[in-house]
Simulated scan of single mutants.
Amino acid sequence: MLRSTRRLLPPRGLSRPLSSQISATAQPNNWKRPLEVGVLPAYDEAVAYIEKDAAAKREKLEALRKVADGSLSPGELLKLEIESKINLPQVRWNFENNQMDLNQPVYRHLLEQKWRTKGRLDRLMERIYQMHVVPDVIPIIRPAVDVRVNFADTVTPRYISTPRIPVPEKKWAKDLSDVVPGSFVSPAKSVEHPKVMAQVFHPEPRLYTLLMIDPDVPSTATSSFQNYLHWLIPNISLSASSNGAISTTKYTPSIPYIPPHPQNGTPYHRYVLLLLPQREALSLGADDIIRLGFDVRSFASQHGLQIAHEDANSSAGGIFMWRAIWDNSVSAIYKHILELPEPRYGPPPRLDPYLDEAGQRPKKYPELPPHVHMQAPSTRITPRAEQTVHNVINS
């Protein structure tokens, strides 16, 4: 059977392929209609339909705002405003080319939907529950803030080497400028605090508190694990249009940053960043907060931080986590930064049932006291034995 070799002809009026005309007419820094009117009638009809629908929804929105009788909630009006712009080609082009104005609800909606539906939030929640951050650190969380971590700009001191992470290579954080949740970052790369980026989706400024917690510090008293507070920054003002970089030059930490230092002999440690909404401005003193044994739940309850929104269907706050395991750089952190002797943990020693109370194994044949002497066995032959031997010889 012969394969047809006919080439598809371009639509009438096109002397070049459609893709070449689009690339030739589109501007890289400013949106422009990719095809002139009349070049492709189907495209003209589609654009006209979208613009007509958008104009009708704008008219309806203006009419409802003038009435303002309370029949529609602010959320329903916001939804109608987004629907009136979301399908416009210019809006879509601006969003895809990162030329959006986040003061406009339609761009905030598109940005949030991209975060929620394109896999980033799904991967974060998978790691949070798979690695038991919930419920080990917090009972529940429904993130409403896109939190990202950047270690690429941190500087490693000269006295700290960068050893190979003792985990499989596929679990390393390959891109330190945008760390994947749950991946491994060497303690040598986190000596300085990371650059934390937080993208919120509400237009008005709101206050947040940043917490960094390690829930995997050994507790010898309970033979279990306990929390360690590495970092605490309150009163962080964030809005959709503001720069989401959380900088210590702009915000003063209540608890200064202490780098991750997973102890020798322990499994990997989880380092959890929490960005929790505040109800009001906080005044925190470092003397009132204890790093070791820090209780997230009681701290949030005491200072009015929202771990989860009161409405079960709503979201609040943000979360991020990465992992680290002991390597040689931790020893330098203990020596030069913490200025503490480095502890070492491991499995408990096996009990030997043959050891005494002093930890000594008793001898199999105990020694007698010096004044006790055992008599050597007698070699004297009794008369009866002598007569028996004489009878055997003479027989």
Results as ranks from 00 to 15, higher is better:
residue 227 N to C: 06
residue 177 S to Q: 11
residue 189 K to N: 10
residue 176 L to D: 00
residue 164 R to W: 03
residue 137 V to N: 05
residue 196 V to S: 02
residue 158 R to C: 04
residue 172 W to G: 10
residue 187 P to R: 06
residue 156 T to Y: 07
residue 184 F to M: 11
residue 146 D to R: 08
residue 142 R to Y: 15
residue 222 T to P: 06
residue 146 D to P: 06
residue 161 S to R: 11
residue 228 Y to N: 10
residue 209 T to S: 13
residue 151 F to P: 08
residue 171 K to G: 01
residue 146 D to L: 04
residue 142 R to H: 12
residue 214 D to L: 08
residue 213 I to W: 01
residue 149 V to M: 07
residue 214 D to W: 02
residue 154 T to K: 11
residue 224 S to D: 15
residue 214 D to S: 11
residue 214 D to V: 04
residue 146 D to N: 12
residue 192 E to V: 06
residue 129 Y to G: 00
residue 194 P to M: 07
residue 148 R to N: 10
residue 165 I to E: 03
residue 162 T to F: 03
residue 128 I to Q: 01
residue 184 F to G: 01
residue 175 D to V: 06
residue 174 K to Q: 13
residue 198 A to V: 11
residue 224 S to I: 03
residue 165 I to P: 01
residue 178 D to F: 15
residue 131 M to V: 04
residue 226 Q to M: 12
residue 195 K to Y: 09
residue 150 N to V: 04
residue 142 R to A: 10
residue 146 D to T: 03
residue 180 V to Q: 12
residue 158 R to L: 15
residue 181 P to Q: 00
residue 148 R to E: 06
residue 181 P to A: 06
residue 179 V to W: 01
residue 148 R to I: 00
residue 215 P to D: 07
residue 184 F to R: 00
residue 179 V to K: 02
residue 193 H to P: 10
residue 215 P to A: 07
residue 215 P to I: 09
residue 134 V to E: 06
residue 220 T to A: 06
residue 166 P to Y: 06
residue 197 M to E: 03
residue 228 Y to F: 15
residue 199 Q to P: 03
residue 197 M to C: 04
residue 183 S to P: 01
residue 172 W to P: 08
residue 163 P to K: 04
residue 165 I to A: 06
residue 222 T to D: 14
residue 138 I to F: 10
residue 210 L to H: 05
residue 192 E to I: 05
residue 148 R to Q: 12
residue 210 L to E: 12
residue 194 P to K: 06
residue 172 W to Q: 08
residue 145 V to R: 03
residue 182 G to T: 07
residue 223 S to P: 00
residue 178 D to W: 02
residue 151 F to G: 00
residue 216 D to S: 04
residue 202 H to C: 12
residue 181 P to I: 05
residue 224 S to T: 15
residue 168 P to H: 13
residue 218 P to L: 00
residue 212 M to E: 13
residue 155 V to I: 15
residue 203 P to C: 07
residue 205 P to G: 10
residue 193 H to K: 09
residue 137 V to A: 07
residue 223 S to L: 14
residue 157 P to F: 11
residue 185 V to M: 02
residue 195 K to D: 09
residue 139 P to W: 10
residue 140 I to T: 08
residue 157 P to N: 04
residue 185 V to E: 02
residue 147 V to D: 01
residue 184 F to N: 03
